[in-house]
Nucleic acid binder design. Structure first.
Lengths: 226, 226
DNA sequence: GCCACCGTAGTACCGGGGTACCACGGCCCT
DNA sequence: AGGGCCGTGGTACCCCGGTACTACGGTGGC
């Protein structure tokens, strides 16, 4: 029997997870936490096999909560779930000691098998992230830029060369039409920070406003037309 | 017995909704749609009492799907669910003919009672939005626009169907990143005229701002990436 | 040990974008 | 002759986006 703790700030999301897990006869939900602090506290108390951890939560976020749970040396494993497959989240999550990283977009079956994998000590990463993750770790030692992007992967456009990783992430979501407020909320940032990022992106890419940036994101294939 | 169709692009979210609804003995889930087009098709086929509609979906979004469902004259009611309580979404959604507008952040009970209200013909709006909506709509009546839209030119995408030729022209240059002032000077128009056009385009396409319109222009291939 | 860069965050300000509302002439119907 | 839609134009108003600063902790390079 695999015991699970659900940590997510959205009640409805928690409900969905709980129903899904309890429909399986080899899983039990020990409890639900609405924020990172609760997650840490309840883990120390209940010792679940797996914590299903959302990243974006008020107060203590999922990354920091993961870090603290792992630091206790408890055998509890953390499986991180996010809405967006932003690389930086994956890096941060795994760096914090998470055993897995899945996107909420996944099929229920994937989630279940992910939990089972993590419970038995395996690690699991969303397919869409695996390659990029490997790439990132491959050139973590040398600073040399990894081979000039094979066909199939988004090719690096010179216009984006001067952007930092973070800025490229922000540009991606600008390209998806997110407002500054949305970016701030979903990425757990202050709006002033978002504005700083956006301003630098516009300056570096020579775009006069975010609309030009959206167009740039499409033209560089940073964002694909749907 | 209230019959419900769930339209959401996230499988896990759909699962949560389904479980929640089917735990009630006065509700049945007729089916699940993963995008707007599916939602429209399945509604025409299954005639549910209520469609639980997410706004953000690939391809045809929730607003446009709502518009089409309402346009059929069917007695199916649409209840829109979003993650963020952005006024613009609410406006666009209600303008498209939705009977309700709730935030996913809500308690399960609120969602259930919302569905019941909508099914019996009542309208329901998230508490956090109600006042602002009333203020905004106190003086405006719903426009049931069938729109003749004779297709003199080959219409590339159904989402643009309700636009007039002129509006499609304006949308094209919006997609190229022109500002209102630029459009005015280059097209020999007054800026107020441009604003009128832009406003109508946003309303008809359910875009909350010109950035969404730019994205729409790319997605519908009205503007090609360079 | 120091410095440059990055990511974060703040304040203050202004202009453009978007909305609401109104108006009018020219069409094309019936 | 009227009715509808379309394209045009106007005014008033508010809010978000963008700019221009400043600032500070962490990390990595030299």
């Amino acid at each position: 029997m695999t015991t699970v703790l659900i940590a997510d700030d959205q009640p409805l999301q928690r409900f969905g997870f709980r129903m899904l897990l309890e429909s399986q006869d080899d899983m039990t939900v020990l409890g639900e936490a609405a924020n990172g602090a609760e997650a840490v506290r309840m883990t120390a108390e209940l010792h679940p096999d797996v914590v299903l951890m959302d990243i974006r939560m008020p107060g203590l976020d999922g990354i920091e909560a993961t870090r603290r749970i792992v630091a206790t040396g408890d055998r509890t494993r953390v499986l991180i779930l996010t809405t967006f497959d932003l690389d930086e989240y994956a890096y941060a999550g795994l760096r914090a000691g998470a055993s897995g990283f899945l996107i909420k977009d996944a099929q229920p079956e994937e989630l279940l098998s992910g939990i089972r994998s993590v419970a038995t000590g395996d690690a699991v990463v969303a397919p869409s992230l695996t390659r990029r993750l490997l790439d990132a770790y491959a050139h973590r030692l040398p600073t040399t830029t990894p081979a000039p992007a094979r066909s199939g992967t988004p090719l690096p456009d010179p216009r984006l060369a001067s952007l930092t990783d973070r800025e490229r992430e922000i540009l991606t979501v600008i390209g998806k039409g997110w407002t500054n407020t949305e970016i701030a909320t979903r990425l757990h940032l202050a709006e002033s920070t978002v504005k700083t990022h956006v301003g630098r992106i516009l300056a570096k890419t020579g775009s006069r406003d975010r609309i030009q940036a959206v167009i740039l994101a499409y033209d560089t294939r940073l964002v694909e037309p749907s």
